[in-house]
């Protein structure tokens, strides 16, 4: 019995150190183009893609110099392919990216369904034309908020289990003591 409790406890405690929210650090590659030596890649997160907070990031690398360009003008759009919600737009910036090699836009996707992700990159040195990256992405339903914090929510239950186990240990110790003192007598 004790061992079973310990095993359960270990699993729960191990799971506790795993965070559940998905924050993009690259994420899933959605599109990539090499134009005039500029390698541009579009990423999305979380995986799987869901309604709610999403992170669209773009990485631009000059293959000739090996430089990562982090001050391009990048406009990110999320356009629904279905009727209902309006399109979303935001500039992608280095400040919003955790990985500073990228420029990211943090958006709130209102509804599930198929969305077209578009990133328009301008202001690249020696390149007049804009580079456009795009992809069709299927967004799943919004994850209920409690799902992203459920590990925090069950903390009291974990504490209760630990306490119960603690009390089991205490009472078994008492029993052992009583047994040994009875044997001594």
């Amino acid at each position: 019995m004790n061992n079973l409790v310990i095993h359960c406890l270990s699993v729960v405690l191990l799971a506790l150190i795993i965070k559940t929210e998905a924050h993009a650090d690259l994420g899933t590659v959605r599109d990539s183009k090499v134009i005039e030596g500029y390698e541009c890649t579009l990423f999305s997160a979380p995986e799987p893609f869901r309604a709610g907070p999403v992170d669209i990031s773009v990485m631009v690398v000059n293959n000739k110099t090996g430089q990562a360009l982090v001050d391009c003008q990048i406009d990110v759009s999320l356009i629904p392919t279905f009727e209902g919600p309006a399109s979303l737009q935001a500039p992608a910036t280095q400040e919003d990216a955790q990985n500073k090699l990228l420029q990211a836009a943090l958006l709130e996707l209102p509804e599930p369904g198929q969305w077209k992700v578009v990133a328009r990159i301008t202001g690249l040195p020696d390149l007049d034309q804009a580079i456009e990256l795009s992809a069709l992405v299927d967004a799943f339903a919004h994850l209920p908020r409690w799902r992203s914090i459920w590990l925090w929510l069950v903390l009291p239950a974990i504490a209760l289990i630990v306490y119960v186990f603690n009390q089991i240990c205490v009472s078994s110790r008492k029993q052992r003591r009583q047994r040994s003192s009875a044997e001594a007598k």
Binding site: K19, Q67, A68, L69, V70, Q98, N99, K100
Partner: peptide, 21 residues
């Protein structure tokens, strides 16, 4: 900005990691 320079600014200062440590 070189890739290495940009990378060196990418610190993942996660509150939970830092608190636990």
């Amino acid at each position: 900005m070189s890739a290495t320079e940009a990378l060196m600014r990418s610190w993942n200062l996660d509150v939970i990691y830092i608190t636990v440590l």
